[in-house]
């Protein structure tokens, strides 16, 4: 009998031409758990997210969302996922409330405007912005609408691809809190990020990715941010002694 993981990667591989974007990834995310993927650009974080979304086809291996094979049943798998990219794409000529109402209707739900406004407010979007077209929103505001959409969909899995990138500290903090709320409600989160400190704050586990490989998985509660940074940099540039020698030379 197989255990039901909310997300599971089994030997996932993906290459783009000669470039090995992801090599033999094995990873699980359990219910109510936040797993952050740390890594430099090109480490394979976004490729991992895209493979779970079915935006890419794996060369080998399988990706499962609530035990549904993403390649075999992509549409069914995506019904359980809420996705927040680096920059949430909203319909610029619709207001915040109209955008969330549209995505809400896609799930078959018919929430009232008041209920949708509560979701937007919970995601941190001020009420004064609800009726404004999203073309006037800042990136942070758009990300908050994205979180509200995720909340509206009652998804059991949240995939976040650099959601904090480019946000000011206050907006990043707001968004972090929203993600924690979703986690506390039982949502499973896989987040790709560069932000070690935010990963430590939000994540239960932190996976370090290098050149398409998941090189280490850390317990975020067992280490402080400095230790995590230290380990990450060691993977990135080699042990501290080597880095020192290299710097002196």
């Amino acid at each position: 009998m197989t255990t039901k993981h909310m997300l599971e990667a089994r030997g996932l591989c993906k290459t783009f031409g000669d470039n090995e974007a992801l090599v033999d990834l094995n990873l699980t995310v359990e219910q109510g758990e936040v797993v952050c993927l740390l890594g430099a650009n090109g480490a394979g974080k976004t490729t991992t997210i895209n493979l779970f979304l079915g935006f890419l086809k794996p060369d080998r291996g399988s990706a499962f969302v609530t035990n549904i094979d993403v390649v075999k049943e992509p549409v069914e798998a995506r019904k359980h996922i809420a996705y927040l990219p680096e920059s949430v794409a909203l319909y610029p000529k619709l207001t915040g409330i109209e955008n969330i109402a549209f995505f809400d209707k896609l799930t078959g739900a018919e929430r009232s405007e008041t209920e949708l406004a509560v979701l937007l407010r919970d995601a941190g979007l001020p009420e004064s912005a609800h009726g404004r077209r999203t073309s006037t929103y800042s990136k942070g505001m758009r990300q908050k609408v994205g979180i509200a959409i995720a909340m509206a969909r009652n998804s059991r899995v949240l995939l976040l691809d650099e959601p904090l990138s480019g946000l000011d500290p206050s907006a990043a903090n707001d968004l972090g809190q929203s993600i924690c709320r979703l986690r506390d409600q039982g949502c499973s989160v896989l987040m790709a990020t560069h932000d070690i400190f935010r990963a430590k704050e939000i994540g239960n586990r932190i996976g370090i990715m290098m050149a398409g490989r998941l090189v280490q998985v850390l317990d975020a509660n067992a280490l402080d941010a400095k230790e995590i940074e230290h380990i990450y940099l060691e993977h990135l540039h080699g042990p501290t002694e080597q880095r020192e020698e290299a710097r002196v030379a």
């Binding site: 995506r78 794409a89 896609l106």
Partner: peptide
């Protein structure tokens, strides 16, 4: 606008 991908990500 990138909304197609966003829309398809919802299981459409």
């Amino acid at each position: 606008d990138g909304t197609m991908r966003q829309l398809l990500a919802t299981g459409v």
